[in-house]
Structure formats: C-alpha cells, structure tokens
C-alpha cells in the first residue's frame, strides 16, 4: 500500500522529467502563524504548581499551562525544477515567538493567577501573584521549503510542502502580568528568574497548500501546516514545545 501511494505521488514528478517546460520563478511576501502545544510547566522550581501523580491524559495537565505562539513575515524566492514539479523555496524570515505560561485564561476573562517564587532568603520566602509570563523573542531566520506540485497547472493548484526554517535570536523581553499592578516593579526580577529563550532553533513542518492564480501571473498561496514542530536542542527552556500547526499566506509575483 505504501509503495502504491509513493508511486502515485512520485509518478507525476517522474513523468515531468521527460518533458521540459519553461521553469517558473517567483518572489513572495509571506506571513504566517503557528500555535505549538507545550508540556505542562510542572517541573519549574519557581512556580507553585499543582500536579497529579500519574500521567493519564486528563490528569497530566497542570493547572498552570504553557503555550507557544509565533508569527512570522518573510521574503522568499521560489524556483521550480524537474519540469516545474518541484519548487525549491528560500529567503529570509523574521519570527516573533510568544512563549507564555499562565493559568487557563487564554479564552476566559477570569483573573486567575499562580504563585511565583521571587526570593528565598533564610527564613523569608516571597511569592508574587502572577497571571501570566510571556517571553517574547525575536528571531531572524532562513526558510527552506520543498513544494511538490504533482498536478498540472490550474488556476487553483494543490501542492504539498516539506518546510524547515533555521532561526537565530536577535532580541527578547519578558512581559509579566501581575495580579497586583503595584508589583510591576518586580518585572525585571522575574525576567532574571525564568529561563532564557533559545539562541537558535529550527522548525520542521508538513503542509498542504493551494496556489491560486493564473500560471505566470501574480497570485497567492495558502498553506495549512500540520504538524509543525520545533527543534531547539535545549532541555532547559521556558516552555517545552511538543507539536502544533499553523497557516501561512503569501503573495506571489512571478518573474
């Protein structure tokens, strides 16, 4: 069965190598968002977290949870090879990641908070009531994508994508929301307590996309990226991403 599927996918590519059309080239402006699920942040010695002893699916969630959200913008070039059946895409990409830890208030207005250990000195221990901590990081990166166009050119053309990007940290900042706004003077203190963002990370994703527009004319591409994952090589990070997905939109100008 796998061989049949592989053949069905590759047949149009192989077929294309025997007839050479003029290769397409294009430049695109892209924008996208990804949401990456994260492990419950129950291993942090600075959060008074509530956990349960066993790892059943409904029990493993800490009441404090983590989420990684990123959005990106970039400029990409695509060159089609193998008789326009394979597109190789690269360029430059700016990414902002928002790694956040908070109680389950992402979709509710409740004023829930958790306790963050801010100082411990002799017989004094100090907690801060924190609603959320968001580590905002800015990266510059290089995307590398391979698009497979198994079908003939149409106004709306389906394609598949394997995508990667390689990102380098350029700046970061922590945004702490305290329950008591008078505690905002402790923000730098909290920034010193939480883990630093990744200096480098890479992502990998699979996607299905639609290339919309007449061949050889400006158009748009819409892609659904599922799954999408992050490789950081750093176990001691503010959030521990697992897997997620996202969407990407790009405006294409052939040349």
């Amino acid at each position: 069965m796998k061989k049949i599927l592989l053949f069905a996918l590759l047949f149009p590519l192989l077929q294309g190598t025997f007839g050479q059309d003029k290769p397409f080239r294009s430049i695109s402006f892209e924008a996208g968002v990804d949401f990456i699920n994260c492990e419950p942040p129950d291993d942090k010695d600075y959060i008074r977290a509530d956990v349960v002893p066993y790892n059943y699916y409904y029990e493993s969630a800490s009441y404090v949870m983590a989420l990684l959200y990123k959005n990106y913008y970039g400029l990409k070039f695509e060159k089609r090879i193998l008789n326009n059946k394979l597109g190789v895409v690269s360029g430059i990409r700016y990414t902002r990641t928002d790694a956040s830890i908070g109680k389950d208030t992402y979709w509710t207005p409740r004023t829930e908070y958790f306790y963050l250990l801010s100082a411990q000195d002799g017989t004094n221990t100090e907690f801060l009531k924190v609603k959320s901590i968001t580590e905002i990081s800015h990266y510059i990166g290089i995307p590398l994508e391979f698009r497979i166009y198994p079908y003939h050119e149409h106004k709306v053309q389906l394609y598949y994508k394997i995508g990667f990007d390689f990102n380098f940290l350029i700046n970061d900042k922590a945004d702490v929301v305290f329950l008591n706004s008078l505690m905002e003077s402790h923000e730098n203190e909290v920034e010193g307590i939480i883990e630093n963002p990744w200096k480098f990370y890479a992502t990998a994703c699979l996607a299905i996309g639609f290339k919309i527009g007449d061949p050889g004319k400006p158009g748009i591409n819409i892609e659904a990226c599922v799954p999408s994952g992050i490789l950081s090589g750093n176990r001691n990070s503010f959030v521990a991403p697992t897997i997620g997905g996202g969407i990407q939109l790009s405006i294409r100008f052939p040349f």
Binding site: T123, N124, T125, L128
Partner: peptide, 8 residues
C-alpha cells in the same frame, strides 16, 4: 520554618 510573603 519560613515567613511567607505574598506580594510583600
């Protein structure tokens, strides 16, 4: 034995 302070 520790004094626990929350928000000071």
């Amino acid at each position: 034995a520790q004094h626990l302070f929350v928000d000071n």
